[in-house]
Structures are given as C-alpha cells and as structure tokens.
Design a protein around this nucleic acid. Structure first.
Length: 589
DNA sequence: GCCGTTTTCGGCCCGACTGTTTTCAGTCG
C-alpha cells in the first residue's frame, strides 16, 4: 500500500502538470514539482506528522526547502480530509489522459495544450488516431516532421520501459565508453548524467568527450550498430536511440575542447537541480556558470566574446572557484550538499565482508566452499551463510532440523579454510505479524541473523511499521534485510514509517541493509541518509545466490554513497575483529 | 508558488538543437 508521502507527491506532480496544461504561471508548476520531490524523498510519514499536531507539521514542512505555507496547508488538508480542493478543481478541468501525452518526448505543455484545445485530443490513444489528420500538422509550430517525430516517439515509448534499471544501463554504458575512448585522438571521455550519479534508474545515457578528432568519434557514435535512430547531430552534441542486449535507451554525446572538459562534465552530470544551485551561487558572486566554464560578469554567452573562464578544465577548479569542495556525483541532488562538507564516501574496496548469501541448502547455486572461495577472491575477511527459513517454501527454506545440520556443515567448512571466516547465519523471515520464523533457542545458536520480510508486502503502512519494529526489537536480530521488499519499477513493497524504524534500529543497535541487487536497492538512497541521521549502522550485501552476484556490490555501494554513507558506519567495512565482536555481543547478550 | 548577506515584491539557470519560421518558440537536459 502506498504511503501518504508518495500519494501526496503524485498529487502535487499532477497539479504541476495540470497547471502547465492550463497555461498558468510556469513557476507555479515548477514549484509544485519541487514540493512533489521533497515529499518523495521525505522519510518521515507526513500522515503521522499531521495526525500528531497539524501546527507542528506545518512548521516542520515549511522548514523544508521549496515547501511554503500554501503547500504545507494543502498537505494538512489532504491528511485531514482525504483530498485537496485545488487538485480536484484542476482534475475537473484537465483530462487525465493528457498527462501521458505530456510524457512523450518532444511534446511539451504548449503542444499538448494546443492539441487538446483545438483538436480535442485527450489521450495518447486520441493522438495516435489523429497522426495522419492534416489538422494536427497544421497546428501552430507543428508540421510534417514534428508529427513524424511524435509518431516515432510513441512507438519507441511503447516498446521500452520509461527508465532503465541501473544494473542494465551501467554495463552498457561502460562498454560504449570503453569502445569510444579507444578511438584515436580521444583525450577524455566519460559517462555522465544520472548514471554517473548512481541513480537507481536511468533515463538516458550521457557521454562527454574531449578529442582531437570530433568527427571520427561523432561518426562512430551515430553509426554504432546498436543505433536505431539519430535524433540530432550538431557540431557539439548528438543524440541517438539505441538498442542493445534487450535495452532500448536514448544516448547523448557532447563533444567539447579539452580546456572546458570539466565544465561540460559537471553540466552533463547534473542533477539539473544541483546545477541550478551552482549557477545561483555563481550569480551571487558576480559570476556566470555554463557548460563552457565559470566566467566573470553576467553577460550572455561569454565564451563567444572570447572571454577566458576563471575555471573550466576540471570539476575541482570550478567548485573551488565557487568556494566549494569537490562534491561526489552521487551527492549532486540538491539535497543540501552545498551546505555541508561532503563525507569521505564508502567505496567498493572498503567492503571486506559479505553478510547475506545463499547456498544450495536453500535456493543458492553455490556450496559453502564455493561461497568461501568467492569471498576470498575479493579479499573479504568474512562471509556469512544465510539460507532461507521454513516459510520460504519456494526457496527451499530450511526446517529447524535441516538448519541444525547446516550449521554443523558450516562450522566444519570454517575449520577447513584459512584467511576467510565463514559465519553460520540465517535469513529469517519476518512474518506478517513481526514474529520470526525460528524460535529464540535456535536463533541463539547462529552467528548472524538477517531478518527480512518476504511475504505480505501489501500490508498497510501501520501494519508494516509494527511488523518491522517488532523484528528490530528482537534481541537476536543483527540486520534487517531489504526492509521494504520493493522491486525497482515493479513492486512498491512495504511503506512503513521509515523514521520510526531508524529510531528503533539505532536504539536496538540493529543494522539496516542496502540490498545491492539492482532490482532491490533496498534501503534506497534517501533511506540511507535518514538512517545515518538517526545514527544507524548500515549493511551492504549482495544477497548472492551465484558467484557472479558478488559483482552486484557496486550497485549497493552507489546507492549507499547517494545516501552519504562513510565506511565507518558500514558493518561490512569493519575489520574482522570489530565485526565479529559486534555480532557476538548480540548473541551473548 | 517560493524566497530574501540588495528584496515581503519581483524575480525565478543556461544553452543547444529542431522545425518551424523568415527571427524564433518550444523542448530538452
């Protein structure tokens, strides 16, 4: 069941779209979108907040950047009455189907409004039916080519998911990057955009290149075998649609002189909101920032006047000229990163333990020895065997008797190996009512207990909160595995009051997992931030079922970095002695 | 609608590209 926060975020987004479609002041639309974004990222449950005390809730909400008195009142109105009057009025004016028309690349509010008002087009279905109608091409600023582009955009959107999961986009981008970077004359080339920021889904691939032979790189890019359509090919920027390994995605390449590579990389990495903050900061200092560098003065296109930028070659020097330290891409989301010194974010190399992995005893493909070998290959000091508990029938969950046998096998394997410690653990189901799937006596015999919700993932936020709070309070639990059970783009999962979970996890000294599988990434980035603010410990685990799953670690690390995680707060990055002592303390308590 | 080391009113980031137009609006990132 969706949380109040997410419901409200959707409503504010809808109001923004409706405002655009009715020709309202465009800044009002921007503003509503900003509120939607804050709500989406907020880990406190506004429903609970308002229920407790509306006045405090308003104060708390207006303290958030981008939420003013007006929007805070609307949020209260929603919680108290179940709806927002202005939203209802806007919805009565604008057909719902128009929102999906607005989603089509190339169609903005002006075009959608004209189609709707002049031709009565109220949905993508309507639009498709009118594609050959001359009246469509006759609309202002429309024409044959524009209509053709719309037709292709609709076809493309029908066969591809709106956004591609990080785990599919990253390997594709790395392959393309390496291929382009190997061309003669290429001095710098990197992927940028949401991919470089490590976002959980990717809208399109962005590449920035500095090279001696732009034409050669441009040609290789636009004529690449995976390209299905060239959308634009200017001197400095080209855009294509490409399909590869079952992934269909747009890709942009920006070609720049090496002297301004940093400015272009910064610009193309975004986020857009982070860039806006940087430009505002530049203006306050009498400077102007664009993709060609940081310039003195406020004249437009200073690079065309032959003016020399104060900084442009590297991101570091641009941040420095704005009196800022270099900010890691994962933090560039306009979530206050300009107002606090950036942490020394965790890296893949910091992780020295895998604490959530499966063997052939349940649904994994590795023996205990193979699991240990994978850990050793990566230089880990510890790996935990955490097979499923009986409720996971599909996953061949272990009965108490089988678990006891398995424990003995793990301890025997541990005696056989050097330089890796194999821990005997379990991924125990958190049952719908919050009880665990093994009794306490059995749990006491385990080195590590990862408690995870697998079933009843549609229960209400209140039930989910109670369920997970109970698991967190259990004295034998070390880690809560994939706490919400969401699947990126497919299953919403539980929507508990995350702030309440963080407080409890901090109190009971339970670590919260970032499941590194790119289908999960659960906790998600904003949860990590919230958990750290509460003083929680974080685990990053791959939930490995096969050897190659150990390679998923990067996705968990990127997500954790987006939440601001430092190695010290990640139990997988601790030295062996510290980790083992922490685990044992919980068992012996 | 939000916001304020000039401001409680009047601003609100910046440039590339396309397809429409005869100089630029719309869209995108």
């Amino acid at each position: 069941m969706a949380s109040t926060n997410q419901e409200l975020a959707r409503i504010f987004s809808e109001m923004a779209a409706a405002l655009e479609l009715t020709g309202a002041n465009p800044f009002r639309a921007v503003s509503n979108n900003r509120v939607a974004r804050e709500l989406r990222d907020l880990t406190e449950d506004v429903g609970a907040l308002v229920a407790e005390d509306p006045e405090t809730a308003v104060a708390r909400l207006t303290a958030l950047p981008g939420i003013g008195k007006g929007s805070a009142q609307k949020i209260v109105e929603y919680v108290q009455t179940g709806g927002i009057d202005e939203h209802r009025k806007l919805m009565a004016k604008v057909p719902r189907g128009l929102f999906e028309v607005l989603e089509i690349p190339g169609i903005g509010p002006k075009a959608a409004k004209a189609m709707w008002e002049q031709l009565g087009i109220e949905s993508v279905a309507d639009l498709k039916a009118r594609l050959d109608d001359p009246a469509l091409a006759a609309l202002p600023r429309m024409g044959k080519k524009t209509v053709e582009n719309i037709r292709r955009a609709i076809l493309f959107s029908e066969k591809t998911a709106a956004r591609v999961p990080l785990g599919k986009a990253l390997p594709l981008a790395i392959a393309l990057r390496d291929e382009l970077a190997a061309l003669p004359g290429v001095r710098r080339l990197e992927y940028a955009g949401s991919l470089r920021r490590g976002c959980e889904t990717i809208g399109d691939l962005d590449f920035v290149a500095a090279c001696d032979d732009p034409e050669g790189v441009r040609r290789r890019f636009t004529e690449h075998p995976s390209v299905t359509q060239v959308l634009a090919h200017g001197d400095t920027k080209c855009s294509v649609r490409l399909e590869s390994e079952g992934v269909a995605i747009q890709a942009d390449l920006r070609l720049v002189p090496e002297a301004v590579y940093g400015a272009a990389l910064l610009y193309f990495t975004g986020s857009k909101e982070h860039n806006v903050r940087l430009r505002e900061r530049a203006i306050k200092r009498g400077l102007r920032l664009n993709e060609y560098g940081l310039f003195r003065g406020s004249e437009e296109r200073p690079q065309e006047q032959g003016k020399k930028p104060l900084a442009a070659a590297t991101e570091e020097e641009i941040y420095a000229a704005l009196d800022l330290p270099w900010i890691p891409p994962e933090l560039r989301e306009d979530r206050g990163e300009l107002d606090r010194p950036p942490p020394r974010l965790i890296e893949v190399g910091d992780v020295k333990a895998e604490l959530h992995a499966h063997t052939t005893a349940s649904d994994g493909r590795m023996s205990i020895a193979e699991l240990a070998a994978c850990a050793r290959e990566r230089g880990f000091h510890t790996v935990a065997v955490t097979d499923h508990s009986p409720s996971q029938v599909i996953a061949n969950g272990l009965s108490p008797e089988r678990l006891l046998d398995h424990l003995a096998a793990v301890r025997a394997a541990n005696d056989e190996v050097r330089d890796v410690t194999i821990l005997a653990g379990s991924e125990v189901d958190v049952l719908p009512d919050g009880r665990l799937d093994y009794d306490d006596e059995l749990l006491r015999r385990l080195d590590l207990v990862v408690a995870s919700p697998h079933a009843a993932l549609r229960q209400s936020p209140a039930e989910a909160t109670a369920r997970l709070l109970k698991a967190i309070a259990h004295p034998r639990v070390h880690v809560i595995g994939h706490p919400t059970g969401r699947i990126v783009g497919r299953r919403e999962g539980l929507a508990p009051d995350m702030a309440a979970l963080f407080a409890a996890a901090a109190e009971h000294d339970v670590a919260l997992e970032v499941n590194a599988n790119w289908l999960r990434l659960d906790l998600r980035d904003v949860h990590v931030r919230g958990a750290l603010d509460h003083g929680c410990k974080i685990a990053i685990d791959t939930d490995a079922h096969r050897p190659e799953h150990f390679d998923l670690l990067i996705y968990g690390v990127l997500t954790a970095r987006r939440g601001g995680l430092e190695a010290a707060s990640c139990i997988n990055a601790w030295p062996a002695e510290k980790l083992h002592a922490w685990l044992a303390a919980k068992r012996d308590a």
